[in-house]
């Protein structure tokens, strides 16, 4: 495994003014015993509400913040002690920070990074070419960074983080503030990266569409603790999110009719539209039973909404 954390904690001491001179010290655990292992080539979504400890965890994994307790290793190194060595093997993108040189054209930031990371010219050229094609950097590679749009800058940031061929890429809210098209470009690029499989990606985000489109594995953190670690489907089954069937009927829904494997949750449009919530039975069986019971005009099966599940999860914890 390329990332391993056991019982990772980070406590901050907060001073609060009490009266005129006295100050009260309270210890706040931003990260409170996180266990996390990530295998090489995985793409993991790391999510949680604001203040849950996402960024704090990421800072500890990248070596800019030392843990108060627990063990952590990234690429087999202890991040804080070996920060400089580790820096060559990881890439980091903070959605709200920039690692590019503000007043230089994007392309010059790239070649400067090549020297800083001591990347051989041929590797650099090959990686840059790949990123240029996938992210369409051509249009703005000669533009000073300060004149780039947020979407363009983010594409530049992603390239900058990948030019030295990192083994792990940490992305802290890479799609924050981007428009639909730029989000799409970033997601397509990341899923391309995932397909190639040689880069491990840890992604924090508030945009759950990022997770649904990119990450098979999802780690949810709240109040400094991991509350879910598994696939998106496992999250749904754990929180009993149900798929629903919405059917438009030729004739009104007969009062009192029930179907095995589903519960009628709504009858609308003078009985001609019915919503059924599945209790885990395969949708096919229920649809077959439904078609036998009433003549159908139209039908759709709706997947549960991940946003609802997450919202419920955050609320449950509070």
């Amino acid at each position: 495994m390329i990332i391993s954390a056991r019982g990772l904690r980070k406590d901050f001491t907060v001073h609060r003014k009490v009266g005129r001179f006295r100050r009260e010290r309270t210890v706040v655990s931003a990260v409170d015993g996180v266990d996390l292992t990530v295998e090489r080539g995985e793409m993991v979504g790391y999510i949680g509400p604001n203040g849950a400890g996402k960024s704090t965890t990421l800072k500890m994994l990248t070596g800019v913040l030392s843990p108060s307790g627990g063990e952590v290793q990234v690429c087999g190194l202890e991040p804080v002690a070996k920060r400089t060595t580790l820096a060559k093997r990881i890439g980091v993108v903070f959605g709200q920070r920039s690692q590019l040189w503000w007043d230089l054209p994007l392309g010059e930031s790239f070649s400067l990074l090549r020297h800083i990371y001591r990347v051989p010219e041929t590797d650099h050229t090959a990686r840059l070419k790949q990123c240029t094609e996938l992210l369409a950097l051509d249009e703005f590679i000669h533009t000073p960074v300060r004149q780039l749009s947020l979407g363009q800058r983010m594409r530049g940031e992603l390239t900058a983080a990948l030019l030295h061929g990192p083994e792990v890429l940490f992305l802290d809210e890479p799609t924050i503030g981007l428009d639909v098209l730029s989000k799409q470009a970033v997601r397509t690029f990341l899923s391309e990266l995932d397909t190639r499989g040689d880069t491990t990606v840890v992604l924090t985000t508030h945009d759950l569409a990022d997770i649904e489109k990119l990450c098979r594995r999802l780690v949810v953190i709240d109040h400094g603790k991991v509350v879910h670690d598994g696939t998106v489907d496992e999250l749904h089954s754990r929180y009993r999110s149900r798929r629903t069937i919405v059917a438009d009927l030729e004739l009104p829904w007969p009062d009192g009719l029930t179907l095995p494997g589903a519960v009628v949750t709504a009858v609308e449009a003078e009985g001609r539209r019915v919503t059924l919530t599945l209790d885990g039975t395969a949708a096919g069986e229920v649809v077959a039973a439904l078609a036998k019971a009433v003549p159908l005009r139209d039908l759709s099966v709706q997947e549960p909404d991940i946003e609802d599940v997450i919202a419920r999860l955050y609320r449950d914890d509070n």
């Binding site: 990248t62 800019v64 400089t84 990881i90 903070f94 920039s98």
Partner: peptide
């Protein structure tokens, strides 16, 4: 807080 980006470079 941008200084964090400076620390994440191997220099």
């Amino acid at each position: 807080g941008d200084v964090v980006a400076d620390l994440l470079r191997p220099i």
